[in-house]
Design a protein around this nucleic acid. Structure first.
Lengths: 144, 144
DNA sequence: ATTAAATCGGACAAATTTATCCTATTAAGA
DNA sequence: TCTTAATAGGATAAATTTGTCCGATTTAAT
């Protein structure tokens, strides 16, 4: 569904949010350990998320990554995905046609539109804060 | 959603089915033209589909690809996808965790399960025959 | 038998995605 | 000011997916 980069990105962002809620700024190294991802690759993804204002980065000693509390409440899963994978999940034909719409549809156009609208709704309705709640309670996990 | 190989595979299979309904066996070259796909790559995919008994291949002069009428009615979109991409669309965690289930879920486990069940149901409920009906009527397309 | 038209299958090439490595830059603290 | 701990970013490598090429094999028709 998502690229590897996007999977790591969502997990990293969620971990940063979780720690930011406790006022802790976290380092790349800690993030990669806690979400079980390759360090250098995760660095690239965080760079991208930082440029897209999904996370805040602080350089130098005692630096790291953090997210403002208001952002944690506001950010939707869709914005994280969009920062890394763009809009290719929603857009484009399920069978790869360059041009596919209600006027000139592929044989499964309507069915795909429905599935993807569900996905889109889900991503746009899920907040970053919501993703952290189960983690605190030990009900959900970011590795294994 | 699907790999390029799978997109070509679905379109190729649908075109073969459409022609088989008229009793016409079709060549690789014709298929690639009609679905606008790279010929040699399409050949590889058809080999795979043939091995997985999704399509029948006939070697030699006047050979080509075809699908039995009973198979056209019986085959589900899920079987075509499975022959090429395997079950990775249904299986596996949306955030890439190796182990993710109701017992030890990722933060979006339940939401992803729902989306993917929708997708799974759709693929399992769509027959190959159904995919050809709009094509005959000029209501749906396999290229552009 | 020979030829021509077709798929099969192995080797290879290109493009994209995933991942690593190293140097530069930044900032805090001794 | 120097050292140390951090991110930034460019170059490169590995792995996967996508795509090409060509000879081998098969089969129908002549």
């Amino acid at each position: 569904m998502f690229s590897k980069a996007c999977e790591y990105g969502i997990r990293a962002t969620t971990y940063i949010a979780l720690q930011s809620l406790e006022g802790r700024r976290v380092s790349l190294k800690e993030i990669a350990e806690e979400i079980d991802s390759p360090v250098a690759f995760t660095a690239k993804i965080l760079q991208l998320l930082s440029k897209n204002n999904v996370v805040d980065s602080v350089k130098g000693a005692y630096g790291g990554f953090e997210i403002e509390r208001t952002q944690i409440d506001r950010l939707k899963l869709s914005e994280i995905v969009n920062a890394i994978d763009g809009d290719k999940i929603y857009v484009g034909c399920g069978l790869g046609l360059k041009e596919c719409n209600a006027d000139k549809p592929c044989p499964v156009h309507d069915k795909f539109v429905e599935i993807r609208n569900n996905l889109k709704q889900m991503l746009e309705n899920t907040t970053l804060y919501e993703m952290t709640t189960g983690l605190e309670a030990g009900l959900t996990y970011l590795k294994r």
